[in-house]
Amino acid sequence: MAVNASPSPILSRPLAYGATSLGILALAWVLATSVLGWVGPEVLPSPLAVIARFANLIVEPFAGAALFGHVLASLERWSYGVFFAIVLGVPFGIFFAWVPWFRAVVNPVFETLRYIPPFAWVPIAILWFGASTATQAMVVFIAAFPACVINAQLGVQHVDNILVQAARVFGADQLNTLRRVVVPVATPSIFTGIRIAISNGWMALVGAELVVGKTGLGFLIAQGQQNDSVSTIFVGIIAIGVLGVLIDLCVQRLERRLMPWQLP
């Protein structure tokens, strides 16, 4: 309730800075468009015009759906892709770090695939799945998977060997050593990977939606361009940014809850 009763001052200060910088940006935007008129509405619509368009898009369908429909469509594809990237990528990365022969065998393939941009997979995804949810989810997956793998792997590799020795001394088998010692200690790194995966996936999704699909925020932007509606494009862009931040905040909150031991 009371903001200043927050138990963690580390949280509230960046929040204040963040609000300030966003406020300055908004102010500059108002000045440049509405007040001083440096840029015309066909280049950069005023905040008011964007807000009006936003309200309009919430109730009135555009490009096949209202704003909420596009958001849901994007979130759905994104969640499928990110879900599979995490569920497969994190264990893969842990296994990668824990079992040297596996790393030796798979690493060359993984490294090669990793440098292929997600969008390069769009044509083949369309051939495989058509213009469906699966196509976009696959692009998200490809964009998100490597970050999960690499950070889980790094996290496990950086676990102090003395902890592994201690686990052995106290009778832990491989599975228990991983479960009770190695994976928890690697969790901060795993979460870093998940956060990167989430934003990579989100960006790749919007890109994929620009190219293929009949709904989604990317599609909304593309249609805004087709219809010469700059304000629609801006609503789409801002929605993408805001949703991205919200998702990241949720993950950070989950991270803190999962790792109480990390706090000093």
């Binding site: 003395i162 009770r180 010692v181 200690v185 790792m259 031991w261």
Partner: peptide
């Protein structure tokens, strides 16, 4: 055989 290590080696998440 139990071991006490110089760097403690406690499990940080427990």
């Amino acid at each position: 055989r139990s071991v006490v290590f110089q760097k403690f080696a406690l499990f940080p998440s427990e």
